[in-house]
Amino acid sequence: MSNVSRRNFLRLGACAISGACAVNALPAIGRAAESPDITTLRTTLPYPRIKLAAIGRLKAGVEHLTAYPDPASPVVLLKLGRPAIEGIGPDQDIVAFSRRCSHMGGALVFRAETGTFHCPLHYAMFDAQKDGLMVIGQATDNLPRIELELDATGDIYAVGVKGLLYGRQANVLA
């Protein structure tokens, strides 16, 4: 499961203006900085564990379309063909993301040549290799990433989501 809380992440961000580099040190400090008075927002939603595919069926650059954590949330499972942040598998290149743009929910299109997701509504662009980082666009968060696990038999499971899925108040619907 995730879950360094966003609050702790932000707390760190405040003192670490050099941002991207400094947050590498996040987990340890994050836990240390936990503060009981802001727990209202920290959630441990009951994410299901769902098998998305067997690793052998994935081909580099080819999208495997599926859904998580329920059928109303389209996601894409990808073997990028080059190591990705949070990538799993022997090549550390398997990642999964929501297919709804984190700006206003547009249906994202993947382009294998650049490894990017593109929104036809307002032209947001997200980098699949970089954990869904918004390259450009009007979204207020990077693209939600599906947290994956690979079991001993080579099956890939979705076990959680980082970031809020567009169109939901909580990733797991009430």
Partner: peptide
């Protein structure tokens, strides 16, 4: 561990 920012996975309902 990812160093890319992701916000919370829920917001409160007004």
């Amino acid at each position: 561990m990812s160093a890319i920012y992701h916000g919370d996975d829920r917001v409160p309902i007004p």
